[in-house]
Amino acid sequence: MPILTRNRNNRKRLDPYLLLLFFFVACLVLWLGAILCSLPMGVPGLGKEVASLQQRSGVQSPVTAVLLNFRGYDTFLEVLVLLLAVIGVWSMTLAPFPSGEVEKSPVQLGVVRLLTPLMVLVGAYLVWQGSHLAGGAFQGGAVLGGAGVLLLVAELPWLRSVPSLPLRIALLAGPLVFFSVALYCLLRQGKFLAYPQDTAGAFLLIIETACALSIGVTLASLFAGGRPDDDLPETGTPSDPQGGRTE
């Protein structure tokens, strides 16, 4: 059977349309490669401008300053995109949890028990560190999300009965805090997301903490692949609860 497949594949590889596509893509590679070569490499970029405004941003890390201060609008919309993705996933299905009770290996349970608090700690540390070194809301949130994925993979029984209201609050915390800080700035400074200089650092830390929580919960609930059981009950089209939704 494998040999047969390989034979068929070898024949398929000479598909004229695929060859045409291959040449088209090769031409695109050459064209864009030539453009890449003609780009002026080693220009300073925006590094100098960011460095000169660093003092006013409230944080010492240039990436965090760009992310939350200079391009705060962009980041706010990206946090909203994450929220939108969760809304899309939740409106599709209930989270598919395996129905059968499986005997857990004690090694797995021990690893989960050890690693989960450690990952939460690392996530919080990354958020705190974001003000002066590499780190920040997105990295800390990704680690928190990893902790959630670890719990989901271990299929702990209490995950099935996670209530939906705290999850919703955690999902909304980041966008809401971000938006309310932006509104406060609008009222105080007259500009959306223009932090007052003396309290910019504190504002950024609050936003980062809330966003890290939201991003972590977002990633974990995206991995779960649906809304919790006590959310809107499944109506309409009958669907197989096991139906291939296990990523």
């Binding site: 970029g45 925006l46 590094g47 100098k48 990436v63 992310l67 980041t75």
Partner: peptide, 13 residues
């Protein structure tokens, strides 16, 4: 000199 932090922030998000 310094890295350009703007693309880094874009990639991060």
């Amino acid at each position: 000199g310094d890295i350009d932090p703007v693309p880094h922030a874009m990639v991060l998000t």
